[in-house]
Design a protein around this nucleic acid. Structure first.
Length: 416
RNA sequence: GUGGGCAUAGCUCAGUUGGUUAGAGCGCCAGGUUGUGGCCCUGGAGGUCGUGGGUUCGAUUCCCACUGUUCACCCCA
């Protein structure tokens, strides 16, 4: 134990007895994506550092201090992906997926890496499912993404999730607002908390999100971003809400909602779930109309969404029930039945029946106990007495019912 | 990066005002039932009390450091 190496801080081993929750979540995701016409894309887990610096934004916390960056043996700076969008956009451009026709509807699934202090629902290696939808300025594109996310949460069973939406404008209108906001904040500088004094320079939008009471007093009097939106952004937001209304998707307008990445334009949204501690956002996304060209592609508007899988599973809690993982357990009584047990084991498995039998040479009682633990539906019982007449017993473990079969016929007695 | 809590069996946790063989429940294994699970009873295995140092005749207990973990801040999924 002295030299025992433990897993890196902020990472998790997903153990065999909990992997079914991941499989279940992944299956639901894939099914929903297929239903909505999204196709999976798999990109590398690391990319050139530059990609993330350019897309996420140099001044963001993620790029400034949370990236796993290393030099490869060729001296190139590489980074373990901290989020999924940048790589998908890069792949979209590099492989000219636009040529396959728009809209391009992609999804991804996998680990992300951020060097942060772990806490509830936050890890250094965590998993995200995300979708990216390219090719339209229409709010219908935003709606498509939001609808998938909403439907997925419903099916997963996280029903009391709250959708918050906002528009943070575009490069035409946002700078004007930011300028106004900065000058206003400068006036009330001494009435702001320490954090907000810093934020009012680095990321003034974040100030709007502050929970400090004294900041709230100042915030109340600040101009609203909504009043500064250009006609196009304002109309876009209105029309998006119209679509959500048609679907009767519940949402909350959250004028103070901002996101951590620089690339967002117009629509931003967040799915929140209380009772997860400080990390109540279990999914979020937004529109990024300029990112594709910033990465070197032909200008293509797009909308994306990412879901934190660990957080989503936390929100699911124990609402899911584990399905039995085995159909049949073969119990053999006495040494002379072992050979026949082996034959029946292979036969059952060749028929696709999930089957186990004792390989520890344990007592009959222990074999049944194991069968019970594995939550099997049936036990096939091979006893020397019955075997003399080529007969076997099949026991339904739920009802306790037992019936005898010719050894060649017991398969017909299974109702799976 | 900042601040607080915690670290004893596979799991959840007692405990020792510093003293000889460190406990419980659950789980695991076996027996009670030489061929039948869940309930019950009996027994058993399993701990260098997170790591290193200090104080002491003696430390799992007190002190310090480190590591891990957890919660919050920052930020974010």
């Amino acid at each position: 134990m002295i030299n025992m190496i433990s897993r890196p801080k902020g990472t998790n081993d997903i153990l065999p007895d909990e992997i079914w929750r991941w499989h279940k979540l992944e299956a639901m995701i894939r099914k929903e994506c297929a239903c909505f016409g999204f196709k999976e894309i798999r990109t590398p887990i690391f990319e050139e550092t530059h990609l993330f610096q350019r897309s996420i934004g140099e001044a963001t916390d993620i790029v400034e201090k949370e990236m796993y960056t290393f030099l490869d043996k060729g001296g190139r700076s590489m980074t373990l992906r901290p989020e999924g969008t940048a790589a998908v956009v890069r792949a979209f451009v590099e492989n000219n997926l636009k040529g396959a026709g728009l809209p391009a509807k992609l999804y991804y699934l996998g680990p992300m890496f951020r060097y942060e202090r772990p806490q509830a629902g936050r890890y250094r290696q965590f998993h995200q499912f995300g979708i990216e939808c390219f090719g339209s300025l229409e709010p219908a594109l935003d709606a498509e993404v939001i609808m998938l996310a909403h439907e997925l949460y419903q099916k997963i069973g996280v029903k009391d999730v709250v959708l918050k939406i906002n528009s943070i404008g575009c490069p035409d209108c946002r700078p004007k607002y930011l300028e106004k906001l900065r000058s206003e904040l400068a006036k009330y500088k001494d009435r702001l908390c320490e954090n907000c004094q810093r934020r009012s320079i680095t990321n003034p939008l974040r100030v709007l999100d502050c929970k400090e009471e004294k900041c709230q007093e100042v915030i109340a009097d600040l101009p609203h971003l909504q009043d500064y939106l250009c006609d196009e952004c304002s109309l876009h937001f209105t029309n998006l809400k119209k679509i959500l209304d048609i679907w009767e998707l519940p949402y909350v307008e959250e004028p103070r909602l901002v996101r951590g990445f620089d690339y967002y334009t117009k629509t931003v949204f967040e799915f929140c779930f209380d009772d997860l501690g400080a990390q109540n956002a279990i999914g979020a996304g937004g529109r990024y109309d300029k990112l594709v060209e910033e990465i070197g592609g032909e200008s293509t508007p797009a909308v994306g969404f990412a879901m934190g899988m660990e957080r989503t599973l936390l929100a699911v809690g124990d609402k899911w029930q584990k399905e039995p993982e085995i159909d049949l357990y073969i119990v053999s009584i006495g040494q002379e039945t072992k050979e026949e047990a082996l034959r029946q084991l292979l036969l059952a498995r060749r028929h696709g029946i999930r089957t186990e039998m004792d390989i520890l040479n344990r007592s009959v009682k222990a074999q049944f106990k194991q069968a019970d633990r594995l939550d099997t539906k049936y036990c096939l019982i091979l006893g020397p007495d019955e075997l003399k007449d080529n007969r076997v017993k099949l026991r339904n473990m739920q009802s306790g019912e037992e019936s005898e079969y010719q050894i060649s016929e017991w398969l017909g007695g299974l109702k799976l």
